[in-house]
Design a protein around this nucleic acid. Structure first.
Lengths: 160, 160
DNA sequence: TTATCTCGGATATTTTCTATCCGAGTTCAT
DNA sequence: ATGAACTCGGATAGAAAATATCCGAGATAA
């Protein structure tokens, strides 16, 4: 059970985008984060499809958040990249084999599936109550308040 | 982020083993559950390596639980099959790129990694407080108390 | 002692994820 | 108005992992 590596890049990209009102090209985000440019672009396309970022075409185009960072949860970003289907998929073993239970008597999900769903719900809740703005604030605090200003400065001044 | 399909078979196998004091061959478990025999055996080998089941060789051999089912958590079984490494792996993006932070100033994990670890901990806790005995009881209750007696009967009487 | 049954690790096949490239569309400068 | 440059978007190769399988090593019972 492992998560796509693109999730890490997408979360960092969202934090970075929260520091810019201007659109930021995918190539610029890849340069800032030291990630493969073409593949990073692909993750941003997934965020666009999920309605988390908005893409602007043309010479001064790029990506920007569609909402305030405080209203975008970490869970949304993870699901946009990694998919929203649960990690555990019940194949209804209880209905198979010599002791198989007829489907008509299987109104509730299997007890094992219920346990897995409960665990995944706990995981989802932990990520749902955390916003991109929270992450940005935490990252900034870790660097004694220099990280976010540095990003803002780099985005506005540096020219590739 | 998806879990190995073998997890489902392993959990059902443990529930079944909790109903038998005699060793049960892998082929028998596969027949009962309607799963691929060879691949099912592989999952049981993983459980054996993790110390959850004990294998007995020879003509009347098979697998049996090493401990009472009430002392085996669902988390142990999941980790035995799916691995115990966390789903999210931080590649230290903060140290890369033009604004990379020197490693010496990265004593704490990245804020994003901390959030992911917290979510995974919530998931783990939910599975750790659930035992194989609990699952067996829930499955039995779903069937109005017929499922576990049926399994015990099938294991002792039926002959392939 | 022999034959039969068990597990265990090493071996193909399929699927998924990772990474990349080139075309469609839009904006800005001329 | 025109052209040029820069952007995103989906379709295309390559790599890694999971899935599924087989046959040999070992132990028990007859």
């Amino acid at each position: 059970m492992k998560m796509s590596s693109g999730v890490e890049w997408a979360l960092h990209s969202c934090v970075t985008l929260s520091q810019s009102r201007e659109p930021v090209p995918a190539a610029r985000l890849a340069e800032l984060h030291g990630t493969p440019p073409a593949y990073t672009a692909k993750q941003l396309q997934a965020l666009s499809r999920a309605g988390i970022v908005h893409s602007t075409m043309g010479q001064v185009g790029g990506y920007s958040l569609t909402r305030p960072a405080s209203e975008i949860s970490a869970l949304e970003v993870v699901q946009a990249i990694d998919g929203d289907e649960p990690a555990y998929r019940c194949t209804e073993i209880r209905q198979r084999g010599p002791l198989g239970i007829p489907a008509e008597r299987c109104s509730r999900p299997c007890a094992i599936a219920r346990a897995m769903t409960a665990a995944q719900d706990a995981w989802s809740r932990a990520l749902a109550q955390l916003s991109i703005a929270d992450l940005a604030a935490d990252i900034d605090a870790d660097s004694d308040g220099t990280a976010m200003p540095d990003i803002r400065r780099w985005l506005t001044t540096t020219r590739s």
